[in-house]
Design a protein around this nucleic acid. Structure first.
Lengths: 199, 199
DNA sequence: GTCTATACGATGATAGAC
DNA sequence: GTCTATCATCGTATAGAC
C-alpha cells in the first residue's frame, strides 16, 4: 500500500505546506472552531492577513485536509477490493491501511476523524459520499465472508461500526516503543478482531 | 446497573435542567467552541443574559456535563469490580455499561467523549484523573484474565484502547429497530469481542 | 508576498431597571 | 428571574502601501 508515499496531489508551495501543517496541528489540539486564523499565522510566523495570499479561507483549509484523507481511504479500499483474496485477507489489509494512515499522518487524521462536521454544506455532501462508498465496500467484504462461511454471521452494521471505531485511538495513542512498528501493530489488531479476546 | 436511573445529583431547577439539556444537544451538534450562549438561550426561550441567573459561565456547563458522565463510568466500573466474577463476566458487564450509558444519554455522552479537551485546566486535571482510574480498572480486569488463562496474552494497552474505542459509535449510530434493545446490542458486541469475527 | 490598518459582525459576560 | 442596553474582545476577511 504505497498510497501514502505516492501522494497524487500536485506540488504545493513550501509556505502553503507549512500553513496546512500548522493548521492541521492546531485543529487537532483545539478543534477547528476554536482555532483562529491568528493562531495559525502565529505558528507559521506570519501576520494573519498574509495567510490569504496562500489560502482562500479557513474553511478551505479544513476542506483540503478532509478530502485528501478521505481520498486515501477510498483509494486504499478500492485497491484492496481489486486485489481480491479472501475476506480475512482483505480485512487484514484494511486494518493495516488504517494503522498506516493513522501513524503516518497523525494530526491530519484527527481532523479527518473529528472535524469534518464543520465542513460547509457543499463539501459535506462530497465528504459523506466518500464515506458512504468506504462503508459500502467494507460491508461487501464482511458479507462475502459471511456468505462463504469465513466470517461469523452477526449483525453486519454492528461489526462494521465496531471495527472502524476500534481503530480510532491509533492516531492519538500509538507509541512505537510499546506497540512496535505500524506493521506489527496492524497485525496485532487484526488478530484481535479475527480471533477475539477469549482463549 | 441502576446507576443511570438513580442519579445522585441533587435536584436541579426545571429551568436549569432545560438549559443543560439544550446545551448538551447543541454541543453535540456543533461542538462546544462553535456553540454560543446566544444559541443556547434561543433554544431554551430566554435572552442570553438570563442564562446567567442559572449558570455561572459557558465553561461551567461543559464541566458539569463532563463530570457527571465521568462519574457514571467510574461508579460503574467500581461496582463491577466489587461484584467480582470472572474476567469474561466483568468485561461483558463493562461493555453493557457503555452501551447503556450511550443509549440512555446520547447528547451528553457525545460531549463527554469529544469535548472534554475544552475543559479549563483545573477541571481537565480532575477529568483526566477519573479517566485514568477507569483505564486502570479495565487494565486490571484484562490482566487478571490473562493471568488465569481466560484472556489471550496480547498487548494489554492495545486491547484496552481498541475495546474502549470500538464502543464510541453507539451514542451516534444506535438504531433500536436494526440492533435491538440495549441489552441485545451489548450482548452482540460482547460476543464479537470475546469470540472474534472468524468462524 | 508581506505588511499595517481596518471593517464589521459575533462573542462571553455584566449593569441595572422592572 | 427576566429583560434591555452595553462592553471589551476577538473572529474572518479585505484594501492598499511597499
Amino acid at each position: 500500500m504505497s498510497l501514502i508515499l505516492t501522494s497524487k496531489a500536485r506540488p504545493m508551495s513550501e509556505r502553503k505546506t507549512k500553513i496546512m501543517d500548522a493548521a492541521a496541528a492546531l485543529f487537532k489540539e483545539k478543534g477547528y472552531a476554536a482555532s483562529s486564523m491568528r493562531d495559525i499565522a502565529e505558528r507559521v510566523g506570519l501576520e494573519p492577513s498574509s495567510l490569504y495570499n496562500h489560502i482562500h479561507s479557513k474553511s478551505e483549509i479544513l476542506k483540503d485536509i478532509c478530502m485528501v484523507n478521505a481520498a486515501l481511504f477510498v483509494d486504499g479500499i478500492t485497491c484492496i477490493r481489486e486485489e481480491g483474496g479472501s475476506s480475512t485477507e482483505q480485512l487484514r489489509k484494511l486494518i493495516q491501511l488504517h494503522v498506516d494512515i493513522a501513524t503516518a499522518r497523525g494530526s491530519s487524521i484527527t481532523v479527518f476523524n473529528d472535524e469534518w462536521r464543520h465542513l460547509d454544506s457543499e463539501s459535506l455532501v462530497e465528504f459523506l459520499k466518500m464515506r458512504k462508498f468506504y462503508e459500502k465496500s467494507l460491508r461487501a467484504i464482511l458479507e462475502e465472508g459471511i456468505r462463504c462461511g469465513e466470517i461469523r454471521d452477526c449483525n453486519v452494521q454492528v461489526m462494521l461500526l465496531s471495527m472502524i471505531s476500534s481503530l480510532r485511538w491509533v492516531h492519538e495513542y500509538y507509541r512505537p516503543e510499546k506497540m512496535g512498528d505500524p506493521q506489527t501493530l496492524g497485525c496485532a489488531i487484526a488478530d484481535l478482531w479475527l480471533s477475539g479476546l477469549s482463549t
